[in-house]
Structures are given as structure tokens and as C-alpha cells.
Amino acid sequence: MNHWIDILDVADIPKLGARVVRHGSTDIAVFRNAEDEIFALEDRCPHKGGPLSQGIVHGRKVTCPLHGWNIELVSGCAVAPDEGCAREFPIKVEGSRVWLDLEALAREAA
């Protein structure tokens, strides 16, 4: 079962930037790149938990602000040679609205 939630407008996210969406105790970073593609990852770097939302976005990657790992926005995984993945969340854009699927979180809470 999907659990889609309307979270914000594309325009609420700066180009090449991110916004933090808080759901319960989980922070989710919602990114927008130069092509207006939107991505959602848990706001925790696989390295030492750095807030990815605060990083610099380039191409389809974000550079973590704490120690500079590069993370793929599509998969949440670190660019080799670094290893590890941030959790990714399904996301869709309808019109100008951004929807997030929080089914996984809902199930964990249940």
C-alpha cells in the first residue's frame, strides 16, 4: 500500500538545494537539481550521519557538508570508492506539487 502525502511545492525548494521534511522523528531531505528533478533521501549521510540536506547539489549528486562524501540522489548510495547508502523514499511530482510516499515509515511505526 502506498501512503502518498502532499508535502510542498517545487518552488519551495531552491534550485540546486534542498528542504527538510520532518515526519515523526525522521528527517527527510527533498532535493531539487538544475533540471528540476526532485529526489528524497533520509537526511543522514551513510558516513557519519551528516545532514545531506545541507550539502551542495550538483548534477544528480549531493556533497555531504561534514566530510565531503558524494551521494547519488537517485539511489542514496555513496559514490565509489566510498560505500554505504542513505535510505531513499519514493517521490512524485504532480503539477507543481511534490508527493512523498511514507508507506515504509508508516509500516515501521505500526
Binding site: 531552491p14 534550485k15 540546486l16 538545494g17 557519519k48 550521519g49 551528516g50 545532514p51 545541507q54 550539502g55 551542495i56 547539489v57 557538508p65 561534514l66
Partner: peptide, 19 residues
């Protein structure tokens, strides 16, 4: 361009290890 600044200069405060 704020998006081209390291987070410290974008937020005008210094990020710590716990965010």
C-alpha cells in the same frame, strides 16, 4: 549564489558534527 556556498556560509553559522 547561496546554493554554491558551503553550508556554513549559506546558513551563516558553523555546522557541528551533530548537525
Amino acid at each position: 549564489d547561496p546554493q554554491s556556498r558551503f553550508i556554513n556560509e549559506r546558513a551563516h553559522a558553523n555546522i557541528q558534527k551533530d548537525g
